[in-house]
Write a protein that binds this DNA or RNA. Structure first.
Lengths: 261, 261
DNA sequence: GTTCGTTTTGTTCATTCGAACATTTCCAGG
DNA sequence: CCTGGAAATGTTCGAATGAACAAAACGAAC
């Protein structure tokens, strides 16, 4: 068992509970070789994040609820993504019109934007729409289409038409990976389409990507770093990429990581 | 303070917590003049229903989460609505195509349908879409449009076109009220439109309405009881209405109320 | 390697928790 | 007016909880 870093232990606890449906504090403490109090801290953090639910003596899955589709979601690097989200929220002024695309980072950005005023939101990400319609002053618009159950987003040809119908102040999108040449990569054709559509119909294009995306490969090519206006990330990009960014006049925002609990 | 029936006390606890943001068990016990243990029982039931979240020593709002828009939602009659939802779920076979409309009852129906297999869902209710895309075997399709933040649904002219594009096995919709003549009533023009569109494009039209809808007035008229195929409710309708239903050949399903906790 | 500040983990203890059982209240049916 | 069963509430008590503080591990700068 040895020393597992705390973040990973939490991810593993979440995984364990999802697989088993529930677990006691005692059992988890034994399983990971730490004190019950430590497990309690982990478990409470996970509950605060909405991933698990507390039971006296243990934790369980937030039954039925809409968390099942998150099964595949990474809890890892959540702190970095949250830092990026905060930074992006700082760049968007009240009253702006914003297009937000699919992905976990845009979702966190949405949550960070919810305290703004009078935003106009265009998104094909249901999680984003949900988070933002909590603010009564926001105007949230969705394209129609088939829902990708796993990700709770909408993809397909209609998306391109949808985003082409508006010219927004900010286009915000994530990416599957950025290779060393600065090519933007995704895992599916349809993901690329929506991204391209947003990129083409906004006054400022913000790309959000945590450091794990640098040099990471994915199958579908779509667009290039040079086309975006701002890159928001959590660590300085590798030198080669930094040079390209500089040459293309892309502003790079480094988001300082903060404590989350 | 006197004797408050338990169901109402729970509704009031929920209301209290929503207004204050949080409350201690101790305070609630004093506020309602009952033991802490009783409050614990109430509070745990509300948490199981996903309306509140537990804190050591008290309860709080499920922060940020998508529950804020429920502010205005009735917790009252939830047991009845849930009974109706179970009954409807029993009427829908695996593999069916289903159109579900806006409202809290359709939302509960969606949750009751989530264990089915291979359903095709068409809905303008985001809560319904969310609940049902948790099942990987379902095909969920949404119309596009502006989100009504308060209700998390989509309304407007595009809805009519959307539902007209499919001919589904079951059309399921709620209603604002049913007057004594059997007229179906709603509170807004746009709510009626989607309902009419579903009614016109399904092989079997299911109307769901708890007993409080009988004889209740609302402003916008749209359709008549006689046009539906099945009415699912929790209590026998008043005699005059029953006669009309019988004359129109509408099947009436009475859903037996069960304990919820 | 050493130092210093931060993060993570362990320990203690007063408080809160819920299971189980006892009691009361409510409401039909006689 | 009683009576019996079910639902709601109160009571007790060992286990679980989190705040607070202490110890340890880690990381960066030197």
């Amino acid at each position: 068992m040895s020393h597992i870093p705390p973040e990973e232990r939490r991810a593993r606890i979440a995984e364990e509970v999802r697989r088993q449906g529930a677990a006691t504090i005692d059992a988890l403490a034994g399983r990971f070789g730490v004190t019950e109090q430590t497990i309690r801290r982990d478990v409470n953090a996970l509950c605060d994040a909405g991933l698990l639910r507390r039971r006296h003596g243990g934790v369980e899955l937030p039954v039925q609820r809409e968390n099942l589709p998150y099964e595949s979601r990474q809890v890892l690097h959540q702190a970095e993504k949250q830092a990026i989200a905060r930074a992006v929220a700082g760049l968007v002024p009240d009253g702006a019109s914003v297009a937000l695309s699919i992905g976990t980072t845009p979702e966190l950005i949405a949550r960070a934007l919810v305290e703004h005023r009078d935003l106009k939101i265009y998104t094909n990400n249901l999680n984003v729409a949900l988070a933002l319609c909590a603010n009564p002053g926001f105007e949230v618009t969705l394209p129609g289409g088939r829902v990708r159950n796993r990700y709770r987003d909408l993809v397909g040809a209609a998306q391109t038409r949808f985003f082409a119908g508006y010219n927004v102040d900010f286009g915000i999108f994530g990416v599957g990976g950025i290779d060393d040449d600065g090519e933007l990569l995704d895992f599916a054709e349809e993901e690329v389409e929506a991204r391209q559509a947003i990129l083409a119909n906004c006054r400022r294009a913000l790309l959000v990507a945590d450091h794990t995306k640098f040099g990471r490969n994915a199958v579908v090519r779509g667009g290039h770093l040079a086309e975006v206006d701002v890159l928001v990330t959590d660590r300085a990009p590798p030198p080669a990429m930094a040079a390209r960014l500089d040459a293309a006049g892309v502003t790079v925002h480094l988001a300082p990581r903060e404590a989350l609990s």
